[in-house]
């Protein structure tokens, strides 16, 4: 019977107090609007830094399901015709990878500002906008790839490989658009100095994950396994 009680830990016996930052149960959603970034950066539940990994795990699971569907579908029939990937995809892959680099630069700059190492926030915003632009160009590149395929007469239902190509690129693009929305939100919060450090980090991890995921999908479609 679990009734032998451990002695109370001394650090737990202090009076209840409301902590404005750090890790506790209540009051975590208190975020000053229009305050100072250097102060507000920690006004955050660390929840988003673990939640982003949970979200990434769920997305991995979905694409694992898609991948297994591709493998089963490819193996179940002899109607699989390998398609040649549109050349624009190589360019858009580079764009997406470059956007990860620019975002990382932006994140470092914001961190430096928050840490007091630099007094100028403007360059980090510029890098953010650059990331946003590259992300938009990537989505435009995917659209161009679709147009290129269509001009070859390869539509969604033409053959199983083209079906999977359109499905993978479209679902990935939807997730990238979500990432772009996240970037916009970060830029807005940077503007009114209500950005939490964990929000920035979570958005950056998500964006890098989009890059990794795209490289995976690209190889999956390109390698013709």
């Amino acid at each position: 019977m679990a009734t032998t009680l451990p002695p109370p830990k001394p650090e737990l016996l202090s009076l209840p107090e409301r902590r404005q930052n750090g890790h506790s149960g209540g009051g975590q959603n208190l975020v000053p609007a229009g305050g100072d970034l250097r102060v507000t950066q920690h006004y955050s539940p660390p929840a988003s830094s673990s939640a982003i990994w949970v979200a990434i795990a769920a997305i991995c699971m979905s694409f694992a399901a898609f991948t297994s569907a591709l493998i089963v579908r490819q193996g179940s029939s002899n109607d699989w015709r390998h398609i040649t990937l549109p050349s624009v995809l190589f360019l858009s892959t580079l764009l997406l990878l470059a956007s990860s680099v620019t975002l990382e630069v932006a994140r470092r700059r914001v961190a430096a500002y928050m840490g007091g190492a630099t007094a100028d926030i403007a360059p980090s915003r510029l890098w953010m906008y650059l990331t946003l632009g590259l992300g938009l160009l990537f989505v435009a590149g995917q659209y161009a790839a679709w147009l290129q395929l269509r001009s070859q007469g390869l539509y969604l239902a033409t053959n199983p490989n083209s079906s999977f190509f359109y499905v993978f690129t479209a679902i990935h693009a939807v997730h990238v658009l979500g990432g772009l929305a996240g970037l916009l939100r970060v830029i807005r919060k940077l503007g009114n100095a209500s950005l939490r450090r964990s929000t920035l980090d979570a958005t950056a991890y998500y964006w890098h994950f989009m890059g990794v995921l795209w490289v995976y999908l690209f190889l999956l479609l390109w390698l013709k396994i």
Binding site: V31, P32, R38
Partner: peptide
């Protein structure tokens, strides 16, 4: 820095 009253 002084901060504005927390907006919930």
């Amino acid at each position: 820095h002084e901060t504005a009253a927390p907006a919930v």
